Amino acid sequence: MLPSWAFSQNSAFKAGEKLSFTASYNMSGVLTELAQVNMETSEVKTSKATLLRLKCTATTYSKWDSFFKIRDLYESYVSPTSVKPYLYKRDIYEGGYTKFVQYKYSHSKGTVESLIRKKKKGGGTYDQNKTLNISSSTKDIVSTIYYLRTLNLSSYAPGKNMSLTVLFDNKPTEIVISYLGKETINTNIGSKTCYKLAISIKNSNVLKGTNDNLLWLTADENKIPVFAKFKVAVGNGELKIKSATGLKN
């Protein structure tokens, strides 16, 4: 039986929302702004439904391109109300490494048709196709980020944990979200009282430390992600909001 929070309905965002962030990474002990991250929503009509396209891009600033060029695109096509995903695409370029991933969800069958496309060493590409079994609540990384904004966090007591299943690189991964309480922080869009969340991956050491991977969502009806801190094996960094337009509330 699914917990009550699994049935949250979206009242936090709509088509036309645009969030812009600066991404910083710890280089030789100094947090350095390296890239811009944008999150945008738009409406997409299919023959069967009207979906929300959740588009996330990461682009290094030009002065860092010669050092480590990043051109990443992540997008998920979801139900505007439940944020249930129907199609996911990931197309990345990171320092010469490229990868394309696509998931087509069939929730009635409990499956995902997965395609992963990689470069061959001698040139050209090759495809890996798989059919994956998923639970009814499984999401990709993009729809998970937006889904967190639909939760009724105002009803949570500090210390409450919840588990979410995220499909990443064809592996269902259990992510644990811990609600730490409210905190007021200064941001580029003003002083904001926020819900503070800690994020960890169950049975994995990809994310390092206890409460070292944190996300702040505004404690209002929009629940905008305004600040994030992360710590991984190769270092740590931050994501800070620059601007927010097209808000629903």
Rank of each mutant, 00 (worst) to 15 (best):
G209K: 00
K171C: 07
I116E: 15
L115P: 04
I70M: 15
D65Y: 11
S62M: 09
P225N: 02
S178Y: 03
W64E: 08
K104G: 03
W5Y: 14
K196E: 00
M27V: 13
F13D: 02
T59N: 15
T165E: 14
A58H: 00
G235E: 11
N188Q: 14
S62G: 12
R71V: 01
K192T: 03
G237T: 04
R71L: 06
L132Q: 07
E221W: 05
N211I: 00
S163A: 14
N133A: 13
P85D: 07
Y97P: 02
T245M: 01
T81S: 15
T187P: 07
L19P: 05
N186Y: 06
V176R: 12
A244P: 03
Y25C: 06
S137R: 13
C56I: 12
K223Q: 11
F7I: 08
G209T: 00
S11F: 11
S178M: 06
R53C: 04
V166C: 09
N236Q: 15
V78C: 07
A244Y: 01
M39D: 01
K229N: 08
V232T: 13
L52K: 04
V37W: 02
S143D: 07
V234K: 09
S82M: 08
F13E: 03
Y77H: 14
A23W: 06
S108Y: 11
I185G: 04
D140V: 04
I141L: 14
N26C: 01
T60Y: 09
L207P: 09
E238K: 12
T32K: 10
K109L: 14
K84L: 15
S8L: 04
I175S: 08
T111Y: 02
R53V: 01
D220H: 05
R90Q: 13
K45L: 09
K69R: 13
E33F: 01
L87C: 02
K55P: 00
N205T: 13
I116W: 13
A49R: 15
